[in-house]
Design a protein around this nucleic acid. Structure first.
Lengths: 254, 254
DNA sequence: CGGCTGCTTGATTACGCTCAAGATTAGTGG
DNA sequence: CCACTAATCTTGAGCGTAATCAAGCAGCCG
């Protein structure tokens, strides 16, 4: 098989990304980058890679080589406490970048593993940084994405520091709802790709508490819960319970 | 008074910064930037400005114009919960940058106010970003600083999500101790510039709890506390209590 | 079908919050 | 400089929320 032929296979199999035509364009790194510059960005992408459920993208302690954009599916990032327990630091949906916390000392402080079969775009960070020197829109977008993450981390601190269990779960669900909506999915009906355990871990609660809260939300007629499938029937009341969303800047209605 | 004369006054009064000779060089933005490029960085700095205790650098909702580096003193950043209570998102010591969370939508999500008489270096962000296009070391250092903040936010999530009251306060004090040490101050004797209330707020605890914990740390012979003055007499035991520091990557001894 | 993991529900406990009062410090003005 | 007030901090008592412990249930896969 010639080199050309093998290149074609990569192309035919659809593994070569085209940011230009990606539906996540406006949520992801290319946002704000001129179309004329997108070719350069695409050229540094490694062939897209399917990731199996529970497979790691990287582990805490690994050297930073690439950062990743989730393209489909979902990914959780987590670190370990000194006594060996897991602390989940985020759930990541399509269009979101992961690994940026590793730039500081070139080492991943967290592990990242897929919650379900997923697909990610891998970008070698040194090349990306190099390219950002040439493309103003790309540098700015990187700053923006990191800044947004800082902001949502701050909101999450408020969740953990000030909210009670009910408000935490409500905030979490409202946040997911908003993020699904942004991605063109239903804001009121969606599947949770993470376990109750993961949710509890993330929100700083016990599994039992989360389970009880789901039951109560259902009893109160705010949503129906069928295993992983959530159907929010009274989003405004959920919003009210949440106080304010944890993941997204909310319309100042509260 | 001629223009020249007024310029001299600025110079004479020492308000014009020289990153090159600043003792915070290695902790702050200039780190990793070539000496030859420092002039350009210095040239965009606004004249250094003293900030009085309780004075705001900016308020939540303000448009982003500049980011700030703390030069002396200390600054707290905070946002308001939807029911009007304050949530402190960070305490900032000399060499630390604040305002980076505003890049995303050009608006400060948090307010920043001085905890004591302080001094800050103000950098117009658009000019800084522009300069970062020309100076690779500057772009990289900005990425690094934001990345480091992401990482410490993640560690803080673990503090709020997994640690009990004792561990939170111990982690907080160990974190401060490490940061003072980095800045050339004593790691075991320092003044808290923030109130008990601020500490409690930041750590997601009640003031009364923090007060009781300080008393207990003293009773246990780990430190002496005289109002704001802390003297750590058994740092290793404090480290042990903390589990792991919240602000700094720790030596893997715990 | 059996074993396993994940989820739910109940009973009890405990950690930290709230309420309350007093003590110490800081700030202000005569 | 001291008196007065306000703010901050400390300590105690009681309570409430969510954790822990325990058991049973449901879904999943070999």
């Amino acid at each position: 098989m010639s080199d050309n032929a093998s290149k074609n296979i990569v192309s035919i199999s659809g593994l070569k990304q085209a940011c230009k035509h990606c539906s996540l364009h406006d949520l992801c790194l290319p946002m704000g980058v001129d179309d004329s510059d997108l070719d350069a960005l695409e050229s540094l992408l490694k062939p897209r890679r399917p990731v199996q459920r529970n497979e790691h993208l990287y582990r805490a302690g690994d050297r930073l080589t690439s950062i990743y954009a989730v393209r489909s599916g979902s990914v959780k990032t987590y670190s370990l406490t000194n006594d060996g327990r897991e602390q989940i630091t985020g759930f990541h949906l399509p269009g979101e970048l992961i690994g940026l916390d590793a730039i500081n000392d070139n080492t991943h402080p967290c592990s990242a593993r897929a919650l379900e079969t997923s697909s990610v775009c891998e970008m070698p960070f040194d090349q990306l940084e190099h390219l950002a020197m040439r493309i103003p829109g790309l540098q700015h977008q990187l700053f923006r994405i990191m800044s947004r993450e800082l902001k949502s981390d701050e909101q999450f601190m408020t969740l953990l520091g000030k909210k009670n269990a009910d408000e935490r779960l409500a905030s979490f669900l409202v946040g997911l709802s908003n993020r699904f909506k942004e991605r063109g999915y239903s804001a009121t009906e969606f599947n949770l790709s993470m376990s109750r355990n993961d949710i509890a871990n993330y929100l700083g609660l016990a599994v039992e508490t989360v389970s009880r809260l789901f039951s109560r939300l259902q009893d109160d007629g705010i949503m129906t819960v069928d295993r992983k499938l959530i159907h929010i029937t009274d989003l405004s009341r959920l919003n009210q319970l949440a106080g304010v969303s944890c993941d997204k800047p909310m319309n100042r209605t509260g």
